[in-house]
Design a protein around this nucleic acid. Sequence first.
DNA 1: CGTTGAGTTGATGGAACTCAAATAGCGTGG
DNA 2: CCACGCTATTTGAGTTCCATCAACTCAACG
Lengths: 251, 251
Amino acid sequence: MGLVASGAATTTGVVGEDPPSAPAGCNYCGLGRLCFPGQLAGDGQRAHGLRIRRIRLAPGKALYRRGDRVESLFMVRSGCIRETDESHGAPGAIIGFALPGEMLSLQCLAEAPSTTSGVAVTASHVCVVPWESFCDLSRESPQVATDLVRLVAEAAAAARELLAMTRDRNALGRVSGFLLNLSVRLQKRGVRGREFRLAMNRDDIASYLGLRSETVSRCLTELFRRNLVRVRAKRVQILNPAGMRKVYHES
Amino acid sequence: MGLVASGAATTTGVVGEDPPSAPAGCNYCGLGRLCFPGQLAGDGQRAHGLRIRRIRLAPGKALYRRGDRVESLFMVRSGCIRETDESHGAPGAIIGFALPGEMLSLQCLAEAPSTTSGVAVTASHVCVVPWESFCDLSRESPQVATDLVRLVAEAAAAARELLAMTRDRNALGRVSGFLLNLSVRLQKRGVRGREFRLAMNRDDIASYLGLRSETVSRCLTELFRRNLVRVRAKRVQILNPAGMRKVYHES
DNA sequence: CGTTGAGTTGATGGAACTCAAATAGCGTGG
DNA sequence: CCACGCTATTTGAGTTCCATCAACTCAACG
């Protein structure tokens, strides 16, 4: 159970480390103006910015684990991290997938030792921002504190959205919602949202949606039968977004 | 759609208003040290405290509604407020029940017009704390900002807990978990947790858990058959908490 | 004493799970 | 490039759990 970030200690699973140099991929990062190095590099404000470290993760390797005292915010630069609930010991269900430009571990602010694990679904690059860094920054500008509250509140809203997806909808609606959600998030970061590649396998999707992989599979073929999507292995093509939304809302 | 708090305007449903005087019931309030009038009354720090207003709600009346620009934090002093998701127009499913000492509307920080409504299940007393008040306070003490982030993070954790309850467990497990959860929350605020009165009806419980009222009813009788609880209408008596936890975890 | 509404119980069907088998991808080595 | 083996995914058949609809109980109230 390694201590994460804050010092030189690295978690198991870290493959390599990049120097905090090229800001490529920062354009759509969710931190926005909070991350001075990304947004204001060259403006001379760097000294006041967040202290950021970058790490690379091989697929299946953990970014952080249940029990770790997570003292950093993680930002996905590339790849995909899946967050699993392990509050009841054994590796439980998947709580979320963090895509490029998105954040993890915001909820760890509430719980001293983390009750979740973050594992790379595919090879991933991640920015590590120590919480301490935020605190320093917020002392200088109260705006930062407000932004942080908003970020956490958005994380809570995401949890509520997943709740609505799984508690109130049937299998077909959940799968539709999942694909639509992925589509929107990819578009938000500047990636084409109509045709993309699933980072995760059917079991991951099933766990996330509270279904079985067989059911996910059946739903995908049903959506194909209705000419709403085309799926081949991990390649997804959304043919009729409006139809998908209809399926989602009417479930 | 009335603007909530912050001014003299009151939401529909407000029955009466108490002067902010007696701090009875503040002892177990979730705001803790954030609420100076409650915690430090008489210490001379009152001037630096939060500006608080109290309101009374008749059962079925709204504290705030979908579309309102909620600009305050609500603290339940007595009674029970149910929060319903209405992001898709019509009155949707129940997201949570706020019991005495607990908070609502934390998630409204993320969304300008609220996507949820807060309605009194039973006659209730509520403290209203303008967000502005928090901002003022956090300018003076950076500790307040950190506390606020923690509060929001805890709200997110609660959403995740409900998710785990409904997505990953069967009907019997959900009902067990619900009763155990109520029990723990009541105890936390100093109320006996083994024997209590349900504020909400079967339909509310069902909506919250993603079930039907008939199923909730069947589960309650099943738990009674196993000698784990005794239920008569709204009176609940938990006979065997360990057994209940077993049912919950094994579902 | 009849009415009303909440809650319980019973009977039935459908959606999703389970287990099992077939098929499709995909990397590896010949 | 193709055959091979491995895994992921799809498809099929039977079962389970919960929703649905309907009847019934019970307590409160006029």
